[in-house]
């Protein structure tokens, strides 16, 4: 789907820092100076290993955490500080989240219809019961579930169906941005593909933007327009999916890409994945600045590193 990059960005994250104070002398720097933009109708994939701060970014954006520093703008409104009741109200309808584990994020004592309809109830988004039921039916149909599923409980569903419920719950408020935090990691490969396809279809239809957080680059490739690679809280490399996959610059990105096993036994048996160790690599993320590679492809590194890495590729 074509994304209009000349439009005003839907979400602007600028210099986001998120620290967690563990004790008097120890603070975890979970997110360090991360900036990126998401345009309307776009999918931005955020990749990195566990502990790289990708979920923290998602949670900071949706205001589950209070950012230590930095600005977050959503739809032209600053949302990182204190918000008026009105802004808060708008934000809570227009930004939604899908969580990783669908079993843990659905209330086991509520029926699916009520889980999905909860947002409608809170925001009084219907005139009468019939309208509420109709809205729920519409959303269920959109995510590929049957109307009678509304009266069932979460445990009666399979993993893939539960994740569809999670998506339906996020969609019902017609959000402009959905933050999908590892929403396919807990699913089987064949079910993952179904959910990814569903999310793509929904984007075509409604034009919502996604912030897609994952550690599996092979799936991210299918859904994202642009990708950001995150490690130890630093956004190391960002660019369109094409740019990242065809010309990865940062050694960490290269190691991530080479770690994906290819389903080709003769090739795969001989291949050794590129390894990368921050401690021994001699790279200091704090020294790095953004360098433009081409188009919208940026790498965070020092001048010498940039010269060295780009030379190797060409």
């Amino acid at each position: 789907m074509a994304v209009d990059y000349s439009a005003k960005p839907l979400l602007t994250v600028d210099g986001l820092k998120q620290y967690f104070k563990v004790s008097k002398s120890f603070t975890v720097h979970a997110v360090e100076n991360v900036s990126f933009k998401i345009y309307p109708g776009e999918t931005y994939g955020l990749v990195g290993e566990s502990g790289s701060g990708k979920s923290t970014i998602g949670r900071s954006i949706i205001r589950l955490y209070d950012p230590t520093a930095g600005k977050i703008q959503f739809d032209g409104t600053e949302i990182s500080g204190k918000l008026s009741t009105h802004d808060n109200h708008i934000l809570r309808t227009q930004m939604q989240m899908i969580f990783q584990d669908p079993m843990a994020s659905l209330n086991p004592r509520k029926k699916i219809g009520d889980i999905i309809g909860e947002g409608l109830d809170i925001h009084h988004a219907y005139m009468n019961r019939a309208e509420r039921a109709e809205k729920i039916q519409d959303i269920l149909a959109k995510v590929g579930l049957a109307p009678e599923h509304a009266s069932r409980y979460p445990h009666q569903f399979s993993g893939g169906q539960r994740q569809r419920v999670g998506i339906a719950r996020a969609l019902i408020m017609n959000p402009k941005l959905i933050i999908a935090d590892e929403c396919i990691s807990a699913l089987d490969v064949s079910i993952q593909a179904q959910v990814v396809n569903l999310m793509k279809d929904i984007q075509q239809e409604t034009g919502t933007a996604y912030l897609f957080i994952a550690h599996d680059l092979s799936m991210v490739k299918y859904i994202s327009d642009r990708i950001g690679v995150l490690h130890l809280g630093h956004l190391l490399e960002t660019g369109t999916t094409e740019e990242i996959f065809s010309n990865p610059i940062h050694p960490y990105t290269r190691s991530l890409l080479s770690a994906i096993p290819a389903p080709n036994p003769i090739v795969e048996k001989q291949r050794v994945a590129e390894s990368y160790d921050y401690k021994t690599s001699g790279i200091d993320y704090n020294q790095g600045t953004d360098h433009l590679v081409s188009g919208s492809h940026y790498v965070k590194c020092t001048d010498e590193e940039f010269a060295k890495w780009t030379k190797r590729v060409i």
Partner: peptide
């Protein structure tokens, strides 16, 4: 596990 760690464990 993550992909990078997966590669190491398999090796």
């Amino acid at each position: 596990l993550d992909v990078t760690i997966q590669a190491k464990i398999i090796e």
